[in-house]
Design a protein around this nucleic acid. Structure first.
Length: 885
RNA sequence: AGGCGCGUAGCUCAGUGGGAGAGCGCUUCCUUGACACGGAAGAGGUCGGGGGUUCAAUCCCCCCCGUGCCUACCA
């Protein structure tokens, strides 16, 4: 694997590297978690992507975060398992195949159930695995040996087991109820699968004439076609306007059926005319009202979205066509009083966006309340922690108002409900295996339920079904409950809540200890509408263009708690540059380590006396950053972890440390060896810190460094060593950096080119500062491009100089050429004005009595010091200006 | 209707009850033997508007404006 050290390319090329190392990790089996490992387990189950899907930004973020956590924990020595898999996605997948059939001029009914399902399986083998390959491109360290699919034999067994047990306990029942029906998908949907959207429609006012006399009542409706299914008209019993009419009958317009006027508290007196038409078969509220008043349920809209025979002359028409036709007829016959613009929210199928029809239908339901209770408790008691905690409120809100879950779907692709209908007595037999005879009458004449289960029914079992349940497996024993679930809030109810319920019910234990809810990436799919600027970003294109590492790092840097993400390609480019910076830092190091024999070793505290200030400084800083990164990851603050590493690596390690040691590396003294050792040590640790975020480049570079170990992904993650943290060294360095900064600042302002060396006089009025400056003269000379450095007092009568003040050290830069003293003077005046303004503010603060009385001592002292410093700076500037004129 | 969130530099976004930050972009200078996907310096913000609490508010509270989302059985 090792290439010649000196031959590292000038820029990093991700394409080859990523391929190579992913294969290496797989070959080594690093992703596989063993059940006999003594280490504490750390488990994540993947939110299984749909087999119809291809990797979008949401997946990319979700899986990057999981991979960061898993790689980090694995390096920390945990027995880390990231269990991958895919979801059969019943309706979505069925739609894909049905589209194919349509193109072939066929449909699923012509095809037949058996053949259709075979075809789906075949398609799944061919195309349904694409997303797995895409996850690998991202660098996901999933245990592929444990990959699962919701339609696997084992998981199907779990589904049956759960169904049977819930049925036996009375938690699953079958009933005639009003449900959401998608006429295009030809199936029932759960409440959650309906997306509400505000639609600009109309409110139609329709007259219902009294059977006796010639009066009428006016009813307002948004769905006139349902008039055909009305079986009553209702008013509020307290509505004095209509009390005289109670008990009378009305003629249904057009059909002229007689229907009663009933009284029900549900009716809102203030809405419309206060008269409500009641259609029990096509409206959830009317359905309930129908039950209360024993009204007939007349279905006028069929499963295909067309009007039924009950609709009279409209039979066979599409529901919207019928609306149009009916409105025409109503108008013509003077039934239509008026029409108002009205916007209201209308349910759409979440899979195909067709307008959902509330329809009376016999379906299977799960009784949710008994399952929800313990799940509420689990979160309440902190057995499941939701992070950020603000989502708990949303969770509780939904769980407290939970309604029964319609789980049957009239499609073919999915887990077929394990229930058999007796042809003889109509009884239902529910069992794990196909029963031989009816439980009720013993008849062998049985036929299996044709409905399949909601896809989310099997997803709800995912954390334990994937580990082998209902068998008592070693996997379950070791890895359940899982450690954390990483997901977006859009499936908090769909999935997270249901997993908690099912986990508690069947495992007697929560499915995960923590749930980390991350942001949603806004995409072009219209999912999260925003200022749509056509900013669609395809993760695979980004990986192709900038490398998986840069892409992952960007996502991590953007992964802030509680906010949506809108990626910009420029930002990815920025982190690609960072990857290149890392590459070149190692390139530099490797070029300077060729003569270092043996492996890189841990540094010993006892050896620090051989070290220079910069050595101890960078090690101290490293240890602080290690702490920051570990804490940030502990708290799921991915952006903080990422930016801490970024800042450290680029702006401390590269900008300062590597620059500072360059002269030492060119000598051949013992000091060179120390610099080499420290540099290698710090780079080794930095690469490890970076590895969970940028797995590929860090592996590639780490393998070039001679560190003991097979690979960085199985190397221990750094831990802070407090003993290396040296505050006084850090202070010394930051003083030095400020002095250098001040000189550079003057150079920059005077536009003195780097090639042009300058003369500098430093006059430290404080012994400590003098000592530091004396000790680091060579650094100042190097990093500020100084020709001649003098330490001591400055003779103001001699040459003109530009000065600055850092703490108690006066800095004089003697420009080599004639410079524009006038514009320099202007600059200084501006500077002085700024400082005086600041000084004024601080003085005002300090002269405020109640401020001095109430402010904490530390803040007070800070302000006093600040005032002092500003005074000195201002004084210094005034002196400079004086000399200039 | 209820609930949640957002509005900080030209753009994309961090952050904090006590000195306004990053990346990109912009200006000036620099092909210095890791890196021009680079180095050095710099400009740029009344932290949406108004009020309140506080010695102190970009941050906490209230109102308003703009904007996004979730939940809901108003015809």
């Amino acid at each position: 694997m090792r290439t010649d050290k000196a031959q590292l390319a000038k820029t990093y090329d991700p394409a080859i590297t990523e391929e190579k190392w992913y294969r290496y990790w797989l070959e080594k089996g690093y992703f596989h978690a063993r059940t006999d490992a003594p280490a504490e387990p750390f488990t994540i189950v993947i939110p299984p992507p749909n087999i119809t899907g291809s990797l979008h930004m949401g997946h990319a973020l979700n899986n990057t975060l999981q991979d960061i956590l898993v790689r980090w924990k694995r390096m920390q020595g945990y027995n880390a398992l990231w269990l991958p898999g895919t979801d059969h996605a019943g309706i979505a997948t069925q739609n894909v195949i049905e589209q194919q059939l349509l193109k072939e001029g066929s449909n699923r009914y012509q095809y037949g159930r058996e053949r259709f399902i075979q075809r789906v399986w075949q398609w799944r083998e061919e195309s349904g695995r694409a997303i797995i390959e895409q996850l690998k491109k991202l660098g996901s360290s999933c245990d592929w040996q444990r990959e699962r699919f919701t339609m696997d034999e084992g998981l199907s067994r779990a589904v049956k087991e759960v169904f049977v047990r819930l049925y036996q306990e009375g938690l699953i029942y079958r009933d005639n109820y009003i449900i959401n029906w998608c006429p295009r998908c030809q199936t029932a949907l759960s409440d959650l699968e309906v997306e509400h959207e505000e639609i600009k429609g109309h409110l139609y006012y329709v007259r219902y004439f009294l059977v006796e006399g010639d009066g009428y009542l006016t009813v307002a409706t948004t769905r006139p076609e349902t008039i055909l299914g009305d079986t009553a008209v209702a008013v509020n019993p307290n509505d004095s306007r209509y009390i005289p009419y109670l008990g009378k009958e009305l003629y249904l317009p057009i059909l002229n059926r007689k229907i009663p006027l009933i009284a029900d508290e549900y009716v809102d007196i203030a809405f419309g005319t206060g008269v409500l038409k009641v259609t029990p078969a096509h409206d959830p509220n009317d359905f309930l009202m129908g039950l209360r008043h024993q009204l007939a349920q007349i279905k006028v809209i069929g499963e295909d979205g067309r009007m039924t025979a009950e609709a009279g002359k409209y039979a066979g028409m599409d529901r919207f066509q019928c609306r149009k036709a009916l409105l025409g007829d109503l108008e013509q016959a003077c039934y239509l009083e008026k029409k108002e613009d009205y916007s209201h929210s209308v349910g759409h199928c979440y899979r195909c966006k067709t307008i959902v029809e509330p329809n009376l239908s016999r379906q299977w339901f799960v009784r949710m309340e008994p399952l929800a209770k313990p799940a509420i408790q689990a979160v309440n008691e902190g057995r499941v922690r939701i992070i950020p905690t603000s989502w708990e409120k949303t969770y509780f809100e939904w769980m407290h108002n939970i309604r029964d879950w319609c789980i049957s779907r009239q499609i073919w692709w999915g887990h077929r409900i394990p229930a058999w209908h007796c042809q003889a007595c109509e009884a239902i037999t529910v069992d794990r295996e196909e029963p031989r005879a009816c439980q009720q009458c013993g008849s062998p004449n049985l036929s299996q339920e044709t409905d399949v289960l909601d896809t989310w029914f099997s997803s709800a079992l995912w954390p334990f079904s994937t580990l082998g349940w209902p068998d008592k497996t070693r996997d379950l024993e070791v890895f359940y409950p899982t450690s954390v679930l990483v997901t977006g809030f859009d499936i908090l109810f769909f999935w997270v809540a249901r997993m908690i319920m099912m986990g508690l019910k069947f495992m007697g234990e929560v499915p995960f200890r923590e749930v980390y809810i991350h942001a949603l990436v806004r995409d072009a799919e219209g999912k999260k509408m925003s200022k749509s600027r056509g900013n669609v970003i395809d993760p695979l294109v980004m990986i192709e263009r900038y490398g998986a590492d840069a892409f992952r790092f960007t996502l991590a840097a953007f992964a802030v708690q509680g906010r949506d993400i809108f990626l910009s390609e420029e930002r990815i480019q920025g982190y690609r540059n960072f990857a290149n910076k890392v590459w070149n830092a190692l390139r530099f190091a490797l070029m300077n380590l060729t003569d270092l024999c043996g492996q890189i070793e841990e540094l010993k505290l006892a050896d620090q006396h051989h070290m220079e200030t910069e050595d101890r400084w960078i090690i101290s800083r490293l240890n602080r950053v290690i702490g920051q990164v570990n804490i940030a990851l502990e708290e799921y603050k991915f952006n903080e972890a990422a930016s801490n590493i970024y800042q450290f690596f680029w702006h401390e390690l590269c900008d300062w440390y590597l620059e500072l040691i360059k002269p030492r590396l060119r000598q051949s003294t013992p000091s060179k060896l120390v610099a080499q050792q420290v540099m290698a040590f710090v780079l080794d640790k930095s690469l490890r810190l970076l590895h969970p975020f940028m797995p590929f480049i860090t592996e590639e570079l780490w393998q070039q460094l001679s560190v003991a170990g097979e690979g960085i992904m199985v190397a221990p993650f750094p831990k802070t060593q407090e003993a290396w943290i040296a505050p006084q060294i850090e202070e010394e360095m930051s003083f030095l950096m400020e002095v250098i900064g001040a000189i550079r600042n003057i150079r920059g302002e005077l536009n003195i080119p780097p090639g042009c060396k300058i003369e500098v006089v430093l006059d430290p009025k404080e012994p400590g500062e003098l000592a530091i400056i004396e000790r680091h003269q060579h650094h100042i000379v190097l990093l500020a491009s100084v020709e001649k450095l003098k330490i001591g007092a400055w003779d103001s009568t001699a040459k003109k100089a530009v000065s600055a003040l850092v703490y108690k050290t006066e800095i004089f830069v003697l420009p080599p050429t004639t410079i524009d003293w006038q514009s320099e003077g202007k600059r200084l005046s501006r500077e002085l004005a700024k400082i005086e303004e600041e000084l004024r503010l601080v003085e005002a603060k300090l002269s405020n009595e109640s401020f001095r009385a109430k402010v904490p001592r530390a803040i007070l002292e800070k302000n006093i010091q600040k005032e002092q410093a500003l005074r000195e700076k201002a004084e210094n500037l005034r002196k400079s200006l004086e000399k200039m004129s």
